[in-house]
Simulated scan of single mutants.
Amino acid sequence: MRWNSGGREQVQPDTILSPRELEIARDYAQGQTYHAIAERLHIAPSTVRTHLSTIYRKLEVSSKLELHARLEGASAPNENETDHAAVISELALSLEEAIGRERALSEVLSIISRSRGDTEQVMAAILGHALELCDAECGILFEYHGDQSFSAGFTRGIPQNFQDWLVKQDVFSVGKGTGLGRMETVHDIINIVDVRSEGLYRTDNPLRNATADLGGARSFVAIPMLSGDRLVGAFTIYRQQVRPFNAQATALAQTFADQSVIALDNARMISELRAHSDNN
């Protein structure tokens, strides 16, 4: 039995935490992201976040460094330091998420420098970071073809039957009432609390019904990709539960989307130059 400096019995993490919580705590303390942990455990990133909030509260820690120390055997703080443990754990996770978002945003510069004409690789990287920024499980990077027409250039995390539906549609018209249609009109973020709560879902709109029924979408956001004033594409990112996206995350994702246009243009330009060189 161990005791901390305040004379309180020191309970070990493997006694306090469930096996799943302990596994997530160790992964997170070692630097893995919500998405990496979720992918390995076949759960949603939001579920990882919920577990971590509980872990922080149970272990009475307020940072990733403190979490690592507790897992390595350090003592818990004195009781008078943890009167607001639930609030502290929430604030700590929010701060770490903000730092993670800034790190993901800076990664776009690396994407631009690394891109050597491999558009598919660039699109996959961009969409992955957009999902991390918004703490979402599912996303689609759409290419814009003008006059409310889009095609799914790349997807991540969406169900296979929704993927098959998008492939079958190829280039398709989205309709003014959809998230993409509204985004095209205003060239701004469209944030929908629950796609199933809108009247459009009770009509025969094919995109909305496919997104909700095949994709399992609930909270949804469409983020325009703009080259100057010209719309070139969009991210649509969604969660499979009603958990609305906050303004901070979507604003950061918009900045990321604007920078991502540079990465895609750079990759395409290099690809075209290489093709031209090969033909000569």
Score class of each variant (00 low, 15 high):
1 M>P: 10
155 T>N: 06
89 S>P: 04
209 N>C: 14
211 T>M: 12
259 Q>R: 12
273 L>N: 11
126 I>S: 03
95 L>D: 14
86 A>R: 13
216 G>L: 05
280 N>L: 15
194 D>L: 04
261 V>W: 05
41 L>D: 00
72 E>R: 10
11 V>I: 13
185 T>H: 14
150 F>I: 12
221 V>Q: 05
3 W>P: 02
63 S>T: 14
50 T>V: 13
220 F>D: 06
91 L>S: 01
235 F>A: 05
29 A>K: 00
228 G>Q: 03
84 H>G: 00
140 I>A: 00
144 Y>K: 06
80 N>Y: 05
7 G>F: 08
239 R>Q: 07
167 V>N: 14
193 V>I: 15
219 S>E: 01
186 V>D: 13
109 L>C: 06
33 T>N: 02
30 Q>F: 08
160 Q>G: 01
196 R>T: 15
6 G>V: 02
263 A>S: 08
197 S>N: 13
9 E>G: 00
253 A>S: 12
211 T>D: 00
235 F>K: 02
25 A>T: 10
132 E>G: 04
73 G>E: 06
267 A>R: 04
70 R>A: 09
80 N>M: 04
269 M>L: 15
246 N>R: 03
163 Q>L: 09
69 A>I: 00
255 T>V: 05
138 C>F: 06
64 K>Y: 00
254 Q>K: 14
160 Q>E: 09
256 F>Y: 12
206 P>A: 05
32 Q>M: 14
236 T>N: 14
53 S>C: 09
162 F>M: 01
87 V>P: 01
134 C>V: 14
127 L>R: 05
178 T>K: 03
114 R>I: 09
159 P>D: 01
136 A>E: 08
104 A>C: 02
105 L>H: 08
209 N>T: 04
145 H>W: 09
133 L>H: 13
218 R>N: 07
272 E>C: 02
102 E>K: 01
46 S>A: 15
256 F>V: 08
257 A>R: 03
214 L>M: 06
122 V>W: 10
223 I>T: 10
48 V>C: 07
89 S>W: 01
75 S>R: 06
164 D>K: 12
12 Q>T: 12
219 S>H: 03
51 H>L: 06
138 C>S: 09
10 Q>I: 03
242 V>K: 10
149 S>Q: 15
2 R>Q: 11
101 R>D: 00
125 A>S: 15
274 R>S: 14
71 L>H: 02
159 P>N: 03
23 E>G: 11
262 I>K: 08
276 H>R: 15
160 Q>F: 00
76 A>D: 06
217 A>V: 04
271 S>N: 12
184 E>A: 15
161 N>Q: 12
166 L>A: 08
240 Q>F: 04
269 M>N: 12
73 G>K: 02
250 T>R: 00
2 R>F: 11
67 L>V: 09
